[in-house]
Nucleic acid binder design. Structure first.
Lengths: 343, 343
DNA sequence: CGCCGTCTGGACAACGTTGTCAAGAGTGAC
DNA sequence: GTCACTCTTGACAACGTTGTCCAGACGGCG
C-alpha cells in the first residue's frame, strides 16, 4: 500500500478532492470537473481521477457544496405525527415529488404542539432547506416571515397558515362534513352527534360548520350536548360517545371528525346494544370489512401531498404568482354504517 | 430605516454573522459567541448583538457550521415505504430518539428496490449524516464499507445487512411464524397455507422457515402448493389464496406473511363460502373489529425503531463494542380467526 | 515558420462558520 | 506606581467545495 493510499484507512477522516487530486496527479478543479461531469477533461485524465476516487473511497461533501452553491436540494416536511396512518400517503407523495426534483426530504413531527412546530421549522431553516411543507399545529406563523422573505418557499397543507400570506392546500372539510351529515339525515336521522378534534384545529371547526349547516338546511335543531370537540385520545372520545348514547333522548347517529375518532367510536358502537349509524371523516384500511362497513368521507391524502409539493417546487423555480389556496374535494363512500335507519 | 437595515429586505440574501457584527459594532467572533451561548461576553455587548440579530432576522447557517465542525446532527432513515402503516410507528420512534439527541431525521423510501436504496443511502452519506438506520431492500451492502470506515454509524433494522458486519435489530420472524402455525395446528388444522413476501426478503424466508418447522414438529407433511412467496400486490395474493382454497384438497387455514398480505387475504376470505382460519404476521388497527377478529403475531415496530436508534447513538458516542444483533420478541394475539376449527 | 483559436488544466478566492491565539482593558496586591 | 493576573474582544486561518480567470499545449492555416 502506497503512502497516499494509507489515508484510505485513517478512521474518521474522509478523503477530500485535494487528496484525490494529489493521488491522480492533477489539479483540484479537474477533480471537481470529473465529479460533476463537467466537460473539458480528456478521457485519459478522467480515468486517472476516477481511479483515485475509487481507491480512496472519496465521496463529495455536500455540506461544502451547499455552502458554496446556496441551494441544499432538500425540503422539509413538518407534520403532526409520523405514525398517523393518514399522513403516510401524504408523506410518501411529498417524497416522490421531491425525488423527481432531485431533492431529499427532512421530516419531523410537531406532536400538535405549536412550540415544537416552530422549533422544528426554524431548525430546518437553519439547515437552509430550499422549501417547507407544513401541516400547521399553531395558528400564528409570523415567525416565518423573515424566512419567507429570505427565499424559503413555504406551502401549508391540511390547515391554513396563521397570520401570514402563503400557499395553502386544503381538503374540503366543510363540504365533506355537510355531505356526511346530509347523508345521515337522508336516512331518517334527526338527532345526530358530532365528535371532533380540538377546536383550535382549523379542520375541526370547518367540519363542525359543515355539520351545523347540514342540520340547518334540513331545518333540524342542534342540541349542544350533541357536539363534542376535544383531544382525540380514546378515553375522551369514548366518554363523549357514551354520554350522547345514554342521554334521555339519545342520538341515533354519529359523525366522527377524523380517523382516530372514528376508530374509537367504532369500538364503542361494537359494544352498544342498539345499532347506531356512523359516518367518519377520513377513509381507513379495512373500513369495508367491519360489519357493517363503515361509511366515510374520504380525503385524498396523497393528492394533498402531491399538490403541495408540486406547488412548492413551482415556487422554487421562481414563479411570482400570488399565494394561492387549493381545495381538494372529498368523496362520500357509503358502506353500510351510514345507511342504518334510526333505531 | 438605516442603511444597514436595508439588507433585511434584500430578497434571497440572508444576513451573515459579518452583517450582524457590523451592525452591532463588534467583531465576528463575538457574534459567534453570542449565537452559541458561549461565555465571556458582557451583558451589554450581548444585548447589542441580540438587537442586531433581531433587526436583521439573522439565522445561523448550519451548512457552514457543519462544514467547520464535521458533525451534522442529523441521521438518515431509509425504509421501504413511508406510506406503509407498519413503518409509521418505527419512523416515529426513530424520530423521537433523534430529537432527544438534538438531531434531525432525513428519510426516504427505497420502494423495495436495491438500486434505489443504494442511491438514497449514498446521497445521505454525501450529506454527511452522522448515522444511518436502514431497512435493507438489497442483500449486498458492501458499498457501505468505505462509509462505515469513515465513521458513519449504521444500524440495520427488520432485515439483516448483506455481506457486511454491522448492528442489526430484528423481529423474531422465525419464532413468531412457528407460534402462529403451531396455534393453527393446535386448533386441528393439518392443511395450512403460507402466503408470504418475495423470497429475496429475509423476513419472508425466516417466516417460511418457522412455518416449515412448526409443521415438521407436528409431523405434518407440507404440500408445495401450500406455499406461495412473491410480491405483496393484491392481485398476486388473491390469486395465490384462491388457488389454495379451490384445490381438490383445499387448505383449511392460512398463515399470511405480513400486514399487506393479511389485508388482501381477509378480503378474499370475506367472499369465501366456507370459514377458513387465519393468522397474520403484523398487527393492524381494528383487527379486533372484523368478524371474526383477526388473530395476529404482533411485532413491536416502535420498539424496533427505538432500539435501533438508541444503538445508533451509542455508536455515535463512540462505543467500540463489536456489532451486535438484537432480536425483538413477537406476541401472538388470538382474536378468533385463528381459533376457527377446520371446516 | 509563425500566428491564432481552441481545448485542457490549475491557481486562487469565496461561501459562513468556529477554533486558536494574542492583544488590550481592567483589577488587585505589593 | 508597577507588576501579574483575569476577563473581554477580535484577527485570522481553516473546513471542502465551486466559479473565475489565466496559462500553456496543441492543431490548423496562411
Amino acid at each position: 500500500m502506497t503512502d497516499t493510499a494509507r489515508s484510505t484507512t485513517r478512521y474518521g477522516t474522509r478523503p477530500t478532492m485535494k487528496d484525490v487530486a494529489a493521488r491522480a496527479g492533477v489539479g483540484l478543479k479537474t477533480v471537481s470537473r470529473v465529479v460533476n461531469g463537467e466537460p473539458g477533461v480528456t478521457p485519459d485524465t478522467e480515468r486517472r481521477v476516477q481511479e483515485a476516487i475509487t481507491a480512496l473511497g472519496f465521496r463529495r461533501n455536500d455540506s461544502a457544496r451547499v455552502l458554496r452553491k446556496g441551494r441544499t436540494a432538500s425540503i422539509g416536511l413538518v407534520l403532526e405525527d409520523l405514525a398517523d396512518p393518514f399522513y403516510g400517503p401524504l408523506n410518501r407523495a411529498v417524497e416522490e415529488v421531491a425525488r423527481d426534483h432531485g431533492a431529499l426530504l427532512i421530516n419531523g413531527s410537531s406532536a400538535e404542539d405549536p412550540e415544537r412546530e416552530q422549533e422544528l421549522v426554524l431548525a430546518l431553516c437553519a439547515r437552509r432547506v430550499d422549501g417547507l411543507v407544513i401541516i400547521p399545529a399553531g395558528d400564528d406563523h409570523r415567525y416565518l416571515q423573515p424566512e419567507i422573505a429570505a427565499g424559503v418557499a413555504t406551502v401549508f397543507v391540511d390547515r391554513p397558515a396563521g397570520e401570514i400570506d402563503a400557499d395553502v392546500v386544503l381538503s374540503d372539510s366543510f363540504g365533506g362534513a355537510r355531505d356526511a351529515v346530509a347523508h345521515l339525515i337522508a336516512h331518517g336521522h334527526r338527532r345526530i352527534g358530532f365528535i371532533g378534534d380540538q377546536p383550535r384545529i382549523h379542520t375541526a371547526i370547518e367540519r363542525l360548520r359543515g355539520y351545523r349547516t347540514a342540520m340547518a338546511e334540513a331545518g333540524l335543531p342542534v342540541d349542544e350536548s350533541w357536539v363534542a370537540l376535544g383531544p382525540t385520545a380514546p378515553e375522551r372520545v369514548r366518554t363523549a360517545a357514551e354520554a350522547m348514547l345514554s342521554a334521555p333522548e339519545p342520538v341515533t347517529a354519529l359523525f366522527s371528525g377524523n380517523n382516530r375518532v372514528t376508530v374509537t367510536v367504532v369500538r364503542v358502537l361494537a359494544g352498544h346494544p342498539r345499532p347506531v349509524a356512523l359516518v367518519g371523516f377520513d377513509d381507513f384500511e379495512l373500513a369495508d370489512l367491519i360489519t357493517p362497513g363503515i361509511t366515510v368521507v374520504a380525503q385524498d391524502a396523497a393528492l394533498l401531498g402531491r399538490t403541495a409539493a408540486t406547488l412548492l417546487f413551482r415556487r422554487l423555480e421562481g414563479t411570482d404568482e400570488p399565494p394561492q389556496q387549493r381545495v381538494i374535494p372529498t368523496r362520500l363512500i357509503p358502506r353500510g354504517s351510514g345507511e342504518l335507519p334510526p333505531a
